[in-house]
Amino acid sequence: MTNDDRICEECKKNPERGFKLLLDAYQQSMYWHIRRMVVSHEDAEDVLQEALIRIFKYLGDFRGDSALSTWIYRITTNECIRFLNRQREEAISTEEVQEELMNKLMASEYVDYDNAMEVKFQKAILTLPEKQRLVFNLRYYDELTYEEIGKITDSKVETLKANYHFAKEKIKAYMSS
């Protein structure tokens, strides 16, 4: 029995205890996925809260059509996109949103500026279009397969492969500049 099976079984018997197991297993990876997308710690905390509530709310509806981790990543990603869309509604352009994320990266209490290369690497990721950034993060940091990313983002594997390739090329160019 996998850990995911144990979580699902516990969720059916005792949702609150099952949810606690889910938090133990996925809370951190959810947070880092969100943090890489929204950059600021405070925003990541808010988005994580929303995603967790949504997960608890719909946990009973999870039928196991995909892996539990894929389902969790999908909800978390949707919550990130919802947050970024809200920001876009307030901003004048997509570039402005990108600029805002860059500002958050460069002026945060919770960013370690001592390692210049790591900061530059995050800046390089922030120059990517949102979809490429999402695909890059899920593949590079979370090591998800293209099939899993496809289920999370409703995209074809070929498109995702192309997105990842272009993202890597852009990052390489930015880091070499």
Partner: peptide
Amino acid sequence: MPYRTPEGFFERMQEEA
């Protein structure tokens, strides 16, 4: 990554959730 979290963030987050 250069990102950090406040001390005891995950424990607090779990309790709040």
